[in-house]
Write a protein that binds this DNA or RNA. Structure first.
Lengths: 156, 156
DNA sequence: TATTGTTATACTCTATAACTATA
DNA sequence: TATAGTTATAGAGTATAACAATA
């Protein structure tokens, strides 16, 4: 005789967040794949759009990615013609990373992936439920020390 | 001049789910570490508690884990004295995997990790908000084809 | 011929340390 | 002495294929 389940995992917010979080992360990654980039490239480009010409070290601190990994990311972005390493005006050890025009086109396409995922995910929800859910999740993120816009999955 | 951000990532349910999902998954994994097991061991033990004596193949199908990986998981669980491989009554190719008494103790301890994580995560939320959030997330999981209790992160 | 469990192999990722050139 | 970027190396993890025993 099987033991009675004390409380199903799907009655836990923590479990549902993990389940939905990995599901959406995989879908986002799959949606980005045709664009030839991964979530970390997207994150890096996005941070550069906020403030162009940052050093690799600054990007690392913002995104929580190790500097050794950032070398490869910028290599790949440079190879794809999306960013350019230039001389840093203030520190000759550092590289200043700048977005190239192609990056803006790509970011626009990535934005459509984000929007498509969002609307498909919430397709069964009306406006009121969407607003309630968004607000609760924002509060939950804030009360658990999560930085807005910074995805913990990028660092591991 | 930096471009205006079209819509912050943290205004997307999809992003918040990813952020919160990875955050809680890492916290859960860390909470389980002192018990000497990982999330996949936990999932396997949990499925066995529902129905003891399953074959490895059945466990794989339920959890979405490849059978090559399951070999190692059951090896580790057996080494830790948590499960036992016995002869399968109906199929001489298969092993029937059974929980040992130590597994029930460990599952009880793991349950405390789950409960502790849940209450800490929601510490700033009152009962009404918790209920609302739980219900919305359950609906979201259901409308997006997620099986109750099955974590997509276990398979990758 | 297909399936269960297992093993071997190669491939990808990650973590650590070390190196260089600057500060 | 410390920091930015880079490189090398080893370890973990993953995916693929192949194998023996059995269906």
């Amino acid at each position: 005789m099987p033991e009675a389940d004390p409380t199903p995992l799907s009655d836990h917010v923590a479990f549902l967040l993990g389940q939905l979080g990995f599901h959406t992360a995989y879908r986002f990654s799959d949606g980005l794949a045709p664009l030839g980039i991964g979530p970390r490239h997207f994150g890096t480009l996005r941070v550069l759009r906020e403030h162009d010409g940052q050093s690799q070290q600054q990007l690392c601190e913002t995104l929580g990615i190790h500097r050794n990994v950032m070398v490869g990311l910028v290599d790949e972005l440079e190879k794809r013609g999306l960013v350019e390493r230039r001389k840093h005006p203030a520190d000759r050890r550092a590289h200043a990373v700048y977005l190239l025009p192609a990056a803006h086109d790509l970011l626009a396409r990535a934005q459509r992936v984000v929007d498509g995922l969002e609307s498909d995910l919430l397709r069964e929800f009306d406006a009121a439920d969407r607003a309630t859910l968004l607000q609760l999740l924002q509060r939950l993120a804030a009360t658990n020390g999560l930085e807005p816009g910074i995805h913990p999955g990028l660092s591991r």
